[in-house]
Simulated scan of single mutants.
Amino acid sequence: MSQENAQNNEIDASLEITPEMQAFYQRADAIIGVANSQLGPDAHSGQVGASLLYSAARYSASVASIGFVKGDDFAKEKDDIVEFYTKQYRQMLSDNLTDYAQNFDKYIQLNQDDKPTK
């Protein structure tokens, strides 16, 4: 184990998962479950991923509109809204890519375990 991995494990061990964080991850896992259920002969992971990104964008637009009374006022905030969501997505994607790279062998094994046997 590298020193960096040891430090990450110490940080992870000291990180308290609050009930709010647990609920956040449970919702995310449920959405991933729905996405995975769409995989099959008619839809590969790239197609499902594209649909998932589109649905996240649609849902985010709806959430961002809450509190506005006029469409014109909402439209004026478009650039700030896009910047906010882009920044959030970039950080989450970066964190998950780092996690996947650090746990690549484990995740690849999990993916292979999910494949049906012939």
Rank of each mutant, 00 (worst) to 15 (best):
M1W: 09
S2A: 00
Q3C: 09
E4W: 14
E4H: 11
N8Q: 10
E10V: 02
E10Q: 05
I11C: 05
I11Y: 08
D12L: 03
S14T: 10
E16A: 11
E16T: 11
I17R: 08
I17E: 10
E20F: 03
M21P: 12
R27D: 09
R27V: 08
A28F: 02
D29A: 14
D29Y: 06
I32W: 10
G33M: 02
A35M: 15
N36R: 15
Q38V: 11
L39K: 05
L39Y: 04
L39R: 03
L39T: 02
G40W: 02
G40I: 09
P41V: 13
D42W: 06
A43Q: 03
H44D: 01
H44Y: 06
H44C: 13
S45I: 12
G46E: 08
G46D: 14
V48S: 06
G49Q: 12
L53G: 10
Y54F: 00
S55N: 08
A57K: 09
R58G: 05
Y59L: 01
Y59Q: 10
A61R: 00
A61Q: 01
V63Q: 09
A64Q: 04
A64Y: 07
S65V: 01
S65L: 09
I66A: 11
G67I: 00
F68M: 06
K70D: 07
D73K: 12
A75G: 11
E77M: 10
E77D: 12
K78A: 14
D80F: 05
D80Q: 01
I81A: 01
V82R: 00
E83H: 06
Y85Q: 08
Y85V: 00
Q88M: 01
Y89G: 02
R90G: 04
L93P: 02
S94N: 15
S94E: 15
D95H: 04
N96K: 02
L97Q: 14
L97R: 10
T98Q: 14
Y100A: 15
A101H: 13
Q102T: 12
Q102Y: 13
N103S: 04
F104K: 13
K106D: 13
I108L: 06
Q109T: 14
L110P: 04
L110K: 12
L110E: 10
L110F: 07
Q112W: 11
D114A: 07
D114Y: 02
K115V: 15
P116F: 11
T117N: 14
